[in-house]
Simulated scan of single mutants.
Amino acid sequence: MEVQVRSMGGERAMRAKPRKFLVVDDHPLVRHGFALSVGEIHPDAQIIEAGSLVEALEVAARVRDLTLVLFDLSLADRQGRDGLRRMVDALAGVPLLVISGSDDVADIVDSVRMGAKGYILKTSSTAVLEHAISLALTGETFLPLPRAVLSGNVAADTARPTGQILDRLTDRQRDVFQLLLAGHSNKEIARELGVLEGTVKVHVRAIMQKLGVRNRTQVAVVAARAGCFPEEV
């Protein structure tokens, strides 16, 4: 077993019940790097490390008050979707963020469909990780900007011209749409655009209606397939 527990908060963590994060990756340096980054974001957190799906499932069964899990999509003992499905089921509602070196749109979409609250590329910055964790802890979903989408390398049978989506939206709805795809909350969008949060909610509902989707995740999926993500996270 390579399960490791790190307490990042010292005496202050002893006085209050710390958040507990599980980092699952079979590469020790990568795993430790993510653990250190989470510790920087949440200094009082208890960070548990696991090097395999078996170890991660053992932690999930033993530690009932996990706050969030970072889960490598390609573990040596269980590759891809099957391992993710088993982990999501074992967590029973604890938010999970996939960490992966793959920016394939299918991997991203399938991960979210199977219950992940986001997908973080291993090349992402600590700021992106912090934003993804923040969204996941409030029940929202974080999606990255895969290089395959930005470069236009999306399968022809799933891609639709960007114009077919953007042409349906008003200028203000396009502004909201781009910020929504970047993972911003309604409050953040309102602050960025200098409007009321209620106004943003109206625009978001209108965007969903025009795209024929029911939630923010589906908006992102449609955008990924159409190749119309913003240039930066």
Rank of each mutant, 00 (worst) to 15 (best):
E2Y: 03
Q4F: 12
R6K: 12
G9K: 05
G9T: 04
A13P: 04
R15T: 08
R19M: 13
K20R: 15
F21T: 00
G33E: 08
A35W: 11
A35C: 10
A35Y: 05
G39M: 01
E40W: 05
E40S: 11
H42W: 08
Q46L: 01
A50W: 08
G51Y: 00
A56H: 04
V59M: 01
A61F: 04
R62H: 11
R62I: 07
L66K: 12
T67M: 06
T67K: 06
V69W: 01
D77G: 04
R81Q: 13
D82A: 12
G83F: 09
L91A: 12
G93Q: 06
P95Y: 02
I99H: 07
D104R: 13
Y119W: 03
Y119S: 06
I120L: 15
I120E: 05
L121T: 12
S125G: 07
L129M: 13
S134Y: 08
A136H: 04
L137S: 08
E140G: 08
E140V: 00
F142P: 02
L143K: 05
P146L: 07
A148H: 06
A148I: 02
V149T: 12
L150E: 09
G152K: 06
D157R: 07
D157E: 12
R160F: 08
R168F: 00
D171A: 15
R174N: 09
H184P: 00
H184Q: 12
S185Y: 09
E188L: 04
A190R: 06
A190G: 10
R191D: 14
R191F: 09
R191P: 00
R191A: 14
E192W: 01
G194M: 11
V195I: 15
E197V: 12
G198S: 11
K201M: 06
K201I: 07
V202D: 14
H203I: 00
R205N: 15
Q209T: 06
Q209I: 00
Q209E: 15
K210D: 08
G212E: 00
G212W: 06
G212M: 03
V213C: 07
R214I: 11
R214M: 03
N215F: 10
R216W: 01
A220D: 03
V221P: 00
E231G: 14
E232K: 15
V233E: 14
